[in-house]
Write a protein that binds this DNA or RNA. Structure first.
Lengths: 337, 337
DNA sequence: TTTCCCTATGAAACCGCTTTCACTAGGATA
DNA sequence: TATCCTAGTGAAAGCGGTTTCATAGGGAAA
């Protein structure tokens, strides 16, 4: 029973004394086959350790189930950010349980869109999951073959062609900021993410909305432009501290930057949460494990990955899928109490 | 130029006024084609945005370049351990630069070997990289089709069939232990990894060898059996502390467990490195970032992943490949000074 | 019984590409 | 000038499946 050799459907057919059409029908359950032959074929397949050639199957128009996982991040950035870890874990767990094994594409900033699209077209995947896409979506709409299912993780703006699984970042930003206001903060900074990215803009908009609703006039200086990276957030905050301006709250657009802010505040001798209250975004482990633990808007990161995978699986089964918006919720830590 | 439709080689051929054989030859460079026609075909391909169907190509016996990346870990374990992160990063960076996109398999403990092998055979990959494999290797040797290239990351014992990229764990264990001895330690504990795993056994052997060479008699009680997981290492050490036995050095078989040990010692009021010196294994970020920083045997984790990918790429180009043993080196931190 | 319909099944066409095989034409060799 | 190669090319035969099409055989309906 060594499978060092590949059998073909013809060999199975003649070994079982039937035609290859029958073997195919048994494997795919596409037509009625008499119980006797069915059993015979199945046992022959098992006995001979036969595995149909996937290339031949796909070529002939059968099956379907090859998927790609596109991560719009450099590997470096990707592995640094605990949010992604959770997303990918959710994705893979769900995909695995559906017996789908994704082909991995790390698509870093310096690679062109065209490269990616070519690779996807070449591989002619049945479905593609794309996380972290913050480039023009039109190019995808134009060049991706229209029988290819695409599901975005994260909000990618409206598209009739593709669906997405996301969260309402603006509401998240608003909840975070409102929480600071509820805790008595009056002068609230925000450290934004990379504003080239939609989610960063949305979180900022939520921040602004909360302050506007609370009739707090926003000082433009309060908005520290960051890029989701810890070091740069630290630098921005240090600069602000040096300016001598006062403040009593910070909303950071992700936990990594919140952690950086916490570090800066602590080493500047600022008491958190007494002097300044701090909240992040993502609800990641690093926020929970920080000392003191950082309040955060919990992104259902695992669920995000999970749901995208689920949608792919459904779409592959020809079930209809729609875009989904997952819930965010406030996780109060020690930095806002 | 919308590529929403797939052209076939026939269409390209007739558009260019040649036979499909010629188109194929141009694409693959498998035979001489007159410069004029070659140019013509190439421009037609570009103009029409043609992408050959990979399934058809593979079926017809051409190309080759589909690879699988098998991680013998649950996603959970995998994402917890910083060592893997680096390995995978190295792998992906190299693979990407060779335009290879791996299909991802997380093969957790509760899945049978057969499942994995079936999946690999089904996908008929040209090459497979396997990291963290600590099951019987014979089953792979037996059932993996012999035209499938397999490269292990980590030491998997000898196999004529497969190659691996690894490190000499025994020497690593010896270097670590010797370092503690050099620093004046006399009673050295070790917290082992899961001894079902070869690398754990090798590191333990290295520990024993160093002590034997130094003529220090090993107290069996010194060997705390762990499993590479932080919490369990902590528990084991706490138990040892309660026993009241003295010691002045600890070699933990990975950094995660060393970190756990550090935590336990600190909260027990033991001064590290004054009272007890501590060394880990992996050379990971968490060791460097700990306070005090933990000495460690640096695994070239990035290089490990990188080299495996490199070997795959070479093998796919029909270049000969051999097993490689990468160098380990001591990284002295604050816990042994 | 005869007619009809449905189930079970094999033969053959086809999926899109690679590669062998056979053939042509023009240059080198004798 | 007659002969032999060789480079360039198209036709056709697979690669290993799926699916259409046609057909044989039985039971139900008439």
């Amino acid at each position: 029973m060594k499978s060092s050799r590949h059998y073909t459907i013809d060999e199975i057919a003649s070994a079982a004394g039937v035609s290859k059409a029958t073997v195919s029908r048994v494997m795919n359950g596409t037509a009625t086959v008499s119980p006797a032959k069915k059993k015979l074929v199945e046992s022959t397949i098992k006995k001979m350790g036969y595995h149909p050639n996937q290339n031949a199957r796909k070529l002939a128009g059968g099956v379907g189930g090859s998927i790609a996982l596109v991560l719009e991040e450099s590997t470096e950035e990707f592995f640094l950010n605990p949010f992604w870890k959770s997303v990918v874990q959710g994705f893979i767990d769900e995909a695995s349980s559906e017996s789908l094994h994704p082909v991995l594409f790390f698509h870093s900033k310096d690679e062109s869109d065209e490269d990616l699209i070519n690779a996807l077209v070449r591989g002619n995947y049945d479905a593609v999951a794309i996380f972290g896409w913050h480039r023009d979506i039109k190019i995808l709409e134009r060049y991706v073959p229209n029988n290819m299912i695409v599901v975005f993780g994260g909000n990618q703006g409206k598209s009739k062609r593709f669906t997405y699984v996301g969260v309402d970042n603006e509401i998240g930003g608003e909840i975070a900021t409102q929480h600071l206001i509820d805790q008595g903060c009056k002068k609230i900074l925000t450290i934004t993410g990379d504003l080239a990215i939609q989610s960063a803009r949305e979180r900022l908009a939520g921040y602004e909305r909360a302050l506007t609703k609370a009739k707090i006039k926003i000082d433009p200086k309060w908005i520290l432009e960051g890029d989701f990276i810890q070091e740069n957030a630290e630098a921005a905050l240090i600069k602000y501290l040096k300016s001598g301006r006062s403040f009593d709250g910070i909303f950071a657009a992700n936990d990594l930057m919140a952690l950086g802010a916490l570090k800066v505040l602590q080493s500047a001798g600022v008491n958190v949460p007494k002097d300044v209250k701090l909240i992040g975004f993502d609800g990641s482990e690093i926020a929970k494990k920080a000392t003191p633990s950082i309040s955060s808007i919990a992104q259902p990161s695992y669920a995000l990955g999970n749901t995208v995978a689920l949608n792919l699986a459904r779409a592959l089964k020809r079930e209809p899928i729609t875009s989904v918006s997952l819930d965010l919720h406030l996780e109060v830590g020690a930095t806002t109490q």
